[in-house]
């Protein structure tokens, strides 16, 4: 067997030091993504630093200068987070997104930070016998001219057209979530939308984290808008499939026009896609079929589709229209 070191540090600082000082080290949490990659030969670390038992499993509300936030520890299991009373009552879109992901068994195993940091999905990335720029930079992108049903339509590059598979991260992108990161030089915070990156000419990098930086938790603002959020996933079967497209949304209207709106998409890009142009287009206008479709089209102005992904444009439009119209109907109820 291939020998590798396995260490289980007792503090986050030790964990950071263990990875930062070793180029071949990787963090291991729930393992639902990394262990697959170990078996397939996609990931071949020399050392695994197990962070799953670090004291990062708390879910609690905190009053901050940015208002009340829900602070979620990195190792909180997806199933536990989806079922948490505050998430269910104040962040329904996040709860729905979590429950739309994977299977019951995997949600019991997968962690919050691991879900954010799972690799983008592509059949060629997982198949070490085919070229893939993400796995082997410079080897070429097999998906450009190959199997493309799940390919990105926004923000892709000639080097990579993979999509980020997380549902949870799409809801977090819509909900202005901050990611708390511990590095060798201390702690920093960034919007979750700055965590994931587009492939550009470095598709091997899924995130903006430096080697050794550890996501210790996330902070989600508990706003009135977040309390009416929702998540809608369209997939090839009724459960246990990655999104063809997905929509995380929240909207508040007054006098028939939008006061505030959040919109993010999954299944369309290398990162969860916060649809800011669409939000802008919707603000101060009505929420009706035409307005939402126009907003979607504004966001998709720069979309690049192939024969395999053409469907994503009408599917996104349909799912977004349905989701926002239902939210507005729900306001009256």
């Amino acid at each position: 067997m291939r020998a590798l070191d396995y260490v289980r540090p007792s503090t986050p600082e030790e964990a950071v030091a263990a990875v930062a000082g070793d180029e071949d080290a990787m963090f291991l949490a729930g393992g639902s993504n990394l262990v697959d990659h170990l078996k397939l030969g996609v990931a071949r670390p020399g050392r695994l630093v197990d962070v799953s038992r670090l004291p990062l499993d708390e879910v609690a509300t905190h009053d901050t200068d940015r208002g009340t936030v829900l602070r979620v520890g990195a190792t909180v299991r997806n199933a536990d987070l989806a079922a948490h009373p505050v998430v269910r009552s104040r962040l329904p879109g996040l709860s729905r997104a979590l429950l739309a992901g994977a299977s019951g068994q995997i949600r019991q195993q997968a962690s919050t930070a691991g879900n954010l940091l799972q690799r983008t999905r592509c059949v060629y990335f997982q198949d070490v016998t085919t070229p893939c720029n993400k796995r082997e930079p410079g080897s070429g992108c097999s998906a450009l001219e190959g199997y493309g049903r799940y390919n990105a339509v926004l923000g892709a590059s000639e080097h990579c057209v993979a999509t980020h598979p997380s549902d949870m991260a799409v809801a977090m992108a819509a909900l202005d979530t901050s990611v708390v990161v511990l590095g060798p030089d201390g702690e920093r915070r960034m919007p979750s939308t700055d965590l994931h990156r587009l492939p550009g000419d470095e598709p091997q990098r899924d995130t903006t984290l430096a080697h050794g930086e550890l996501v210790t938790g996330v902070e989600i603002p508990l706003t009135d808008l977040a309390a009416v959020s929702t998540y809608r996933k369209v997939r090839d079967r009724a459960s246990y499939a990655f999104a063809l497209v997905s929509v995380a949304a929240a909207v508040r209207t007054a006098g028939g026009v939008v006061e505030d709106v959040r919109l993010a998409w999954g299944g369309v890009a290398h990162a969860p896609w916060r649809a800011r142009r669409a939000e802008e287009a919707l603000r101060c206008g009505p929420v009706d079929e035409q307005a939402v479709a126009a907003a979607v089209d504004a966001e998709l102005a720069e979309a690049e589709t192939s024969e395999a992904t053409t469907y994503k444009v009408p599917m996104l439009r349909g799912a977004t229209v349905e989701t926002l119209l239902a939210l507005v109907e729900g306001e009256d109820a």
Partner: peptide
């Protein structure tokens, strides 16, 4: 075949 696992070769799930 590039859809060579049960994540990409879909069979009906219970929910279907």
């Amino acid at each position: 075949v590039v859809t060579q696992d049960l994540a990409t070769y879909h069979v009906a799930s219970h929910a279907d």
